[in-house]
Simulated assay, not measured.
Amino acid sequence: MRIKALAAIALAAMVINATGCAQNGDSGKTESGQSAAEQTVKEDNSTGNTQSSGEEDQILTKGPHGEQGVNADTITLSDEQKNAIKEGKFKVALCMHYGGNDWATAQINAIKDTCAELNMEVVAVTDANFSAEKQVSDIETVMALKPDAIISIPTDITATADAYKRAIDSGIKVVFMDNAMKDMEGGKDYVSCVSADSYGNGVAAARLLGEKLNGKGKVGMVYYDADFFVTNQRDAGFRDTLKKEFPDIEIVAEQGFTDENGCNEQADAILTQFPDIDGIYASWDIPMEGILSSVRAAGKEGKIALVAIDLGNNIALEIAKGTVVGVGAQMPYDQGVAETKLAALSLIGESTPAYVVCPAMKVDKENVLDAYKAVYHVDAPSWLLEADK
């Protein structure tokens, strides 16, 4: 088989990004011997829903199959569970859709850190560079390493489905990031799907833009033109919130993209057609970098309100400088921690929720330093502190 041949070649050539994992630290809050699902039900019953008290902790996104999102903060490990996980000395592999951005780096760091705390070995980290064919090969490759669990974000839920099914059928526990196969069920076929509150992040971006424009104006959207669940949710949250809460703001232009690094072209098209546009939204931070470049070239920096999703380093800097209004921020480090805990719980026979969500965070110049620490679990770097003065 061609796939098996590719897998053999890749296994020989791949540089395994492995972590020797010591038994140190605490991976979460201590609870008394309950499964994650039981703890979640307890939380749900005590509050009436899966939302925390603050508005930003509310879960607005439904799962890929319409599941109610469970707050990632409820996924905890008891001391007994931690000990069982450590004694298992489990192996984990990461199969990323793309590893070249700040979101992916934070996820990988969180998974490695949490694995280290739980005496789990990370045996491989792969990067498909948005290629479904490459990801299929990556999955076949890491299967040869016999991991107990794979944590992965699918590049294409149709093209990669068979590869994930082979991994699951071989006994490997699979935790999905952000998206899951249409014909698979969380808690049965795969362990769980963990995502940001993508719809909620779109809501946050719309509110930032609406407030900046005082509820009136004409705006454009630069969106990811693909059937990709999380970005579709973000864009829907943005559109719906403008329509509902800011009816005097009109979306006059929508430009789709498939290459995140070329979005100056989409921005140029919007600026050419609507030179007096008041604001532009982007589906995530890297496309916004291209939009900002185009806005600057047109001499309109500071005159057009810009919002996006994701607090990447470059966009955090622009928010601090005041050139970007703000973003709806994902919590990639927290997401990676939750994914690892869910994989570990499944490996000791515990039941887990089918869909787990990290709440959205609204970020602007007022809270960018605190937001940076919340998103990445490190203090704001000196360059961000300097820009925020």
Score class of each variant (00 low, 15 high):
181 M>Q: 13
154 P>C: 09
204 A>M: 04
195 S>P: 05
156 D>C: 05
181 M>V: 13
216 K>G: 03
117 E>V: 07
162 D>T: 13
186 G>H: 04
126 T>W: 05
159 A>I: 10
143 M>S: 07
197 D>T: 09
149 A>S: 00
218 K>M: 01
109 N>K: 15
109 N>H: 09
217 G>H: 04
147 P>A: 03
128 A>M: 11
164 Y>S: 04
111 I>P: 10
115 C>V: 09
100 G>P: 09
148 D>S: 08
196 A>K: 13
175 V>F: 02
216 K>N: 11
208 L>K: 01
173 K>H: 00
183 D>M: 08
202 G>F: 05
215 G>N: 10
132 A>W: 07
105 T>R: 13
173 K>L: 01
167 A>D: 02
193 C>P: 03
170 S>D: 14
111 I>H: 10
151 I>N: 05
108 I>F: 06
163 A>Q: 02
174 V>A: 07
171 G>P: 09
200 G>F: 04
217 G>Q: 01
165 K>W: 06
143 M>Q: 12
94 L>C: 06
104 A>I: 15
217 G>W: 01
154 P>I: 12
168 I>V: 13
108 I>M: 12
211 E>D: 15
130 F>I: 11
99 G>R: 14
118 L>S: 09
167 A>G: 07
98 Y>R: 14
141 T>M: 15
148 D>N: 13
126 T>A: 01
206 A>R: 00
222 V>M: 06
135 Q>R: 08
165 K>M: 13
135 Q>A: 04
103 W>S: 11
185 E>A: 12
170 S>T: 11
138 D>R: 06
155 T>G: 07
187 G>L: 09
132 A>T: 10
112 K>H: 12
205 A>V: 11
221 M>Q: 10
192 S>T: 14
128 A>I: 07
191 V>C: 03
223 Y>R: 02
143 M>I: 05
136 V>C: 08
102 D>Q: 13
129 N>E: 14
164 Y>E: 01
209 L>G: 11
109 N>D: 15
134 K>F: 00
190 Y>I: 13
204 A>T: 02
206 A>K: 00
155 T>S: 10
139 I>R: 07
171 G>H: 08
210 G>C: 01
124 A>H: 01
116 A>Y: 08
216 K>P: 06
104 A>E: 15
186 G>V: 10
119 N>P: 03
201 N>H: 04
167 A>W: 07
176 F>P: 00
222 V>H: 02
165 K>L: 12
203 V>H: 00
171 G>T: 12
107 Q>F: 06
154 P>W: 08
212 K>L: 05
95 C>A: 14
215 G>L: 03
202 G>A: 10
128 A>T: 12
107 Q>L: 15
193 C>K: 06
158 T>L: 13
175 V>M: 03
168 I>E: 01
175 V>Y: 00
197 D>F: 05
103 W>A: 10
149 A>C: 00
139 I>G: 04
148 D>G: 09
174 V>C: 08
122 V>D: 12
214 N>I: 07
167 A>T: 11
104 A>V: 14
165 K>H: 06
213 L>V: 08
191 V>A: 08
99 G>A: 10
178 D>G: 06
193 C>M: 12
185 E>V: 15
224 Y>C: 08
171 G>W: 09
